[in-house]
Computed example of a mutant assay.
Amino acid sequence: MSSSTVRLLAVGTCLFAVGAAGTTAAAAPQPAHRSAVHRVRPQTLTDLRTSMRGEAFAHASYTFYADQADREDLPDVADLYRRTAHVELHEHFHEEALLAGAIGDEIANLTFSAAGEADEASSMYPRFAREAEQDGDHEAAALFAEIAMDEAAHNAAFTAALRFLQTGQGQVPAPPRVDPVPVPAGPPQVHAARTLANLDTALHGEALAFARYTVFAEQAEQAGDQQVADLFRGTAAVELHEHFAGEAVLSGFVGDTRGNLHRTVAGETYEATVMYPAFAERAREAGDTEAAELFCDNAGDEAGHARAFEQALARLD
C-alpha cells in the first residue's frame, strides 16, 4: 500500500465517520491540549483507553528505535523517530487522556498511581517471576522479581506524597534514582512462549505508566507542586529506561533499523486506516463528536507518520 493511499484511506474514512455530525477531520481544530474533561459514552471511553495504550507503546518503542538508529549512524532516522515519539506522547496520548478523564488533580493522580504500583508489586510481577522460573527463564524471573520490589518502593513513595498532601504529615519523597539500560538490537533471551507473552504485557504496562506519570508531572507543575512533579517524572524515567528497557532486552524487542522501520510502517498504517477510523465511526454514532474529531485528527497524523517512515525505509535501499 503506497503512502498516498494510506493518507486517502485515513482521511476519506474519517470524512465519512464525522461528516454526518456536521464536521470533518480536515476542518477540525488541533489544539495543543484540551482544558476540560468531557463525558463520553462507555464504548468511546474504551476506545480512548485502547488508543492511549497504543500511543504510549509507540512512544516507548520509538525512543529505543531512535537509539538503535544512532548506533547504525543514521541520524536522520533517529531524529524522525524522536520527533514522532514526541507527537505520540505530548499530542495524541495527552489529548486522549484529557478526553477520557484520565488526568485529575495531584491527589487523584497519586491515588491512581499508588494503586497501580501496588497491584504490579504484589500480583502481576510476582506471578510473572514464578512462571518464568517454572519455565526455566531464570534471567527473566530475576528481572520480574527486581521490578516487583521497585514497584513496591514506588507505591510507598506515592502513598507518602499522598499522605503529605492530605494531612501535612511527612514529606514528598525525592524521585528515585535512574540506572538506564541500553537496548541494542538482538534476539530474544528467553525461550518459553509464556515468558515472552508476559514480557509483552509488562512492556505495554511500563510504557503506559511512563506516559501517565509524564502527564501527571505536567499537571503537578501547572498546579505549582514541583515536588510531586519531580516524583512523577523520576518514577516515569525508571519505568521507561530501566523496566521497559530491561524487558525489551530479554524479549529481543529492538531489531536493526530496517526491521524496525518495517514494523513501524505497518503499525502506523494500521492505526491510520483501520483503528482510528473505526473509533471515529463508533464515536460519531454515539454522539461523541469531539472524540470522533480527535480520532480523525490522529488518523491523519498517523498516515503522515507512515509516509515519513516509508520514505526513510526507501532511502536505506
Rank of each mutant, 00 (worst) to 15 (best):
S123T: 09
E281R: 12
H243W: 08
A202M: 10
C296P: 06
Q222Y: 11
G287A: 09
A299M: 13
Q68V: 06
A17L: 07
A245C: 09
A161I: 03
V183A: 07
N198I: 04
L165S: 08
Q227L: 10
L294D: 13
R82E: 09
F210C: 05
V249M: 03
A118N: 08
S122E: 11
Q30G: 01
F158D: 07
P184L: 14
E106H: 01
E146T: 14
M124N: 09
A185S: 14
D73N: 14
A114I: 08
A121M: 07
R34F: 15
G101S: 06
R194H: 03
L89S: 04
G300S: 12
L89G: 03
E55D: 11
L98V: 12
H154A: 12
L261H: 08
L45W: 11
A245M: 06
Q166H: 08
A32T: 05
G104Q: 10
L80R: 08
A26G: 00
A217R: 04
F93A: 02
I147D: 05
G101W: 03
T235S: 13
P180N: 07
V183N: 03
R53I: 00
N198C: 02
G101F: 03
L89P: 00
A145G: 07
M149A: 15
A286W: 10
R233V: 05
Q68W: 05
L74A: 08
D288H: 11
E247K: 10
A202V: 06
L313A: 12
F112R: 14
G104L: 02
L261V: 13
Y276P: 03
H204V: 14
A229Y: 01
D137F: 00
N298V: 15
L74I: 03
V254T: 04
T13D: 09
A299C: 12
R212N: 09
F57L: 15
V249I: 03
Q43S: 11
G12M: 06
M275Y: 00
A314H: 14
G246E: 05
V18G: 05
E271G: 04
P75D: 07
A25Y: 05
A69R: 00
V254E: 05
H33V: 06
R212Q: 14
D105I: 01
A192G: 04
N109Y: 13
A217T: 01
F253R: 15
R34I: 08
E242V: 06
E120T: 01
G186N: 05
S4N: 12
P29G: 04
F112W: 07
A36S: 14
Q68R: 13
A60S: 13
H241W: 06
P182L: 09
P184A: 12
H305G: 02
R83D: 15
N155T: 10
L8F: 08
R233C: 01
A108S: 13
D137N: 01
D105A: 08
A56I: 02
A157I: 04
R258A: 14
T44P: 00
A217C: 02
R263A: 15
E151D: 02
R177C: 01
A248L: 10
P31H: 10
G267H: 03
E55W: 06
T24Q: 06
D73S: 15
P42L: 05
M124C: 01
T111A: 03
A66D: 03
R34H: 15
V215H: 11
V249R: 02
F253Y: 15
A278F: 05
A25N: 01
R49A: 10
G12A: 07
A27C: 04
H33P: 00
D301P: 00
M1F: 14
R177D: 13
E242M: 09
A161T: 05
A66G: 15
